[in-house]
Computed example of a mutant assay.
Amino acid sequence: MAAAWDRTLAVAPGDANTRMARALLDLESGADMQPGYETIRRIVTEDPSATDGIAEKWLYFALCRRDAAEMASALASLPPEGIIPWNIRIPRSFFAGLAARVRNDATSAETAFNAARVEMEEIVRQQPDYAQALCVLGMSNAALGRKQDALSQSRRAVELLPVTKDALAGAAVLTNLAITYAWVGEKDLAIKQLEEVVRIPAPISYGQLRLHPFWDSLRDDPRFEKLIGESKKPIALK
């Protein structure tokens, strides 16, 4: 895959998104953050107007680096509606909460996660069976310590959108359920869910498990360390 991206870069060396995608591959496959950091610095210096287009990946790198200044800059480039990874919209307020949590700013984290909760609650009120919004609502409630709400919403999202119905979004909903379990202190359930997720095409990788704050509450568990190793193995497609 690296060779394919290198060939694409040879054709369009100045394309910001292609450069970011190539750097992201180094992070995902090898937990190497330096190429991404250097790429972002060059893009921002060469063409500040390109930052909006790379904001999602920029924030991902910044969260993995635990870099407060980079997180703030990337968040400022995100639109209020946030991003739509794997067909699931996650509002900017949610990521603002996650960034605040990384900075150990509990007050700002609560404010931001609560804003995300309110936004997702309104969507779910209008569309009770909208799994994508339910799973984000569940994660927001997990961050706020609303354990039972978080579990019921995240589990309901999986019921509504299994991978057999939508392989892309369904895998993301499963991953978000694992995050919810981890955040509410259900480590055994989080590990069990991750054991399923790492064996299917899903928005998860060696680099993410190794570096991203989504999984910080599991880092002292040897089973999680084993899963990090398993995530480097190729996925057997059925």
Rank of each mutant, 00 (worst) to 15 (best):
W5Q: 12
R7G: 00
P13I: 14
G14F: 14
D15L: 15
A16L: 04
T18L: 11
M20P: 01
D26F: 12
S29Q: 12
Y37P: 01
E46R: 08
A50D: 11
T51Q: 13
K57P: 00
W58P: 00
L59F: 04
A62C: 09
D67T: 03
E70P: 03
E70F: 07
S73N: 10
S73F: 04
L75G: 02
L78I: 00
N87L: 02
I90N: 01
I90T: 01
R92D: 02
F94H: 08
F95W: 09
V102K: 02
A106S: 15
T111R: 11
A112I: 06
A115T: 12
R117V: 02
R117Y: 06
V118A: 05
V118Q: 10
E121L: 08
I123V: 12
I123T: 10
V124F: 05
R125I: 01
Q127P: 00
D129G: 00
Y130M: 00
Y130S: 00
L137K: 11
G138F: 12
A143V: 06
R146K: 06
Q148K: 14
V158W: 10
T164F: 03
K165A: 09
L174Q: 12
N176T: 06
L177S: 10
I179V: 13
T180N: 10
D188T: 15
A190L: 11
L194I: 06
E196T: 15
Y206D: 05
Q208L: 13
Q208G: 00
R210Q: 14
L211R: 08
L211P: 04
P213T: 08
P213L: 10
F214R: 07
D216M: 05
D220W: 13
P222V: 08
I228P: 06
I228L: 07
P234D: 13
